[in-house]
């Protein structure tokens, strides 16, 4: 019986190694920019969700001056438009396929907004790369938002009380006390999200971003060999993701050295 892998095909695939090399650069850059955009977006979204901006807060007390705990007016007094928007964003992006999001961003949004057509390093087409980064960034922002929010909420409330009692403002408390502890707590989850993005970025080959998967397609088109280039891609993805998660686990151990002695 023939094996579905033919060793003799590999030398043919290896001729296209430079394509894979370019694919690796694209995938890595794509993931880095995605995490960057996603993280900034997620931080803003998380702070929106945790904010206490209630335009109808004046309704929270009833005619006797007691704080309401139920009823229609109670719900209105609790309404926070920023938290509502952020929650809606997160739920919509988490409940729809990333492929659909990529298509809508590429054909929809950037069908209207024309991007300049230039290439970076001679093989990264900006007009395809940029929409890919935006779409993936918007998507991972929704997931990272929930991670960051849980991280902030995991910090003991006494920390905020101590900071505020020392006269620190809410912003200082967030910056110097809460976020450093929260980020440390959620580092494994962020690392996991980064690895997910490396893998998920493969979806952008559908809009012509020349990442690792697009190299597979190119080899397939030129040689009609399918399985072997896929195996090469598999190996490359593994070599990207596995060390990344190991590296971050190492950093995490180093960072927690301070509180475990």
């Amino acid at each position: 019986m023939d094996s579905f892998i033919k060793i003799s095909n590999f030398p043919i695939v290896f001729k296209y190694m430079s394509l894979f090399g370019q694919g690796i650069v694209v995938t890595v850059l794509l993931s880095l920019f995605t995490v960057l955009i996603g993280f900034v977006l997620a931080l803003i979204l998380a702070l929106m969700r945790l904010s206490d901006i209630r335009p109808f807060a004046f309704l929270e007390k009833d005619e006797n001056g007691y704080v309401r705990d139920s009823g229609f007016l109670y719900l209105i007094s609790r309404f926070n438009p920023f938290a509502f928007l952020a929650t809606a964003y997160v739920e919509i992006f988490r409940s729809t396929p990333v492929l659909v999001q990529v298509f809508i961003i590429y054909y929809g949004v950037f069908g209207v907004i024309k991007l300049p057509t230039f290439t970076v390093f001679g093989f990264i087409q900006f007009a395809r790369f940029f929409p890919g980064v935006v779409a993936l960034g918007l998507n991972s922002g929704a997931y990272l938002c929930e991670i960051i929010r849980s991280g902030i909420q995991s910090v003991d409330g006494g920390q905020t009380e101590a900071a505020r009692s020392l006269g620190m403002s809410q912003a200082m408390n967030l910056r110097y006390i809460i976020l450093p502890q929260a980020l440390k707590n959620i580092l494994p989850a962020i690392a996991n999200e980064f690895v997910v993005i490396i893998k998920e970025s493969s979806i952008t080959y559908t809009i012509g971003v020349q990442d690792i998967m697009s190299a597979v397609n190119a080899v397939k088109g030129a040689t009609f060999i399918i399985v072997e280039p896929l195996l090469v891609a598999t190996a490359i993805y593994f070599c990207l993701c596995f060390p990344t998660s190991k590296l971050i686990a190492y950093v995490e151990r180093r960072m927690s050295r301070g509180d475990k002695r």
Binding site: D156, A162, R164, L166, M168, Q181, K184, G258
Partner: peptide
């Protein structure tokens, strides 16, 4: 915040900042 600066508070559970050294705990504010 200005008033709170003038009111020092000590808590039952200390609430030291675990990510900062003792010295930085004291000099941050």
């Amino acid at each position: 915040d200005a008033h709170r600066q003038k009111m020092g508070m000590v808590f039952q559970h200390f609430n030291l900042f675990p990510h900062l050294t003792i010295l930085n705990n004291m000099t941050l504010a």
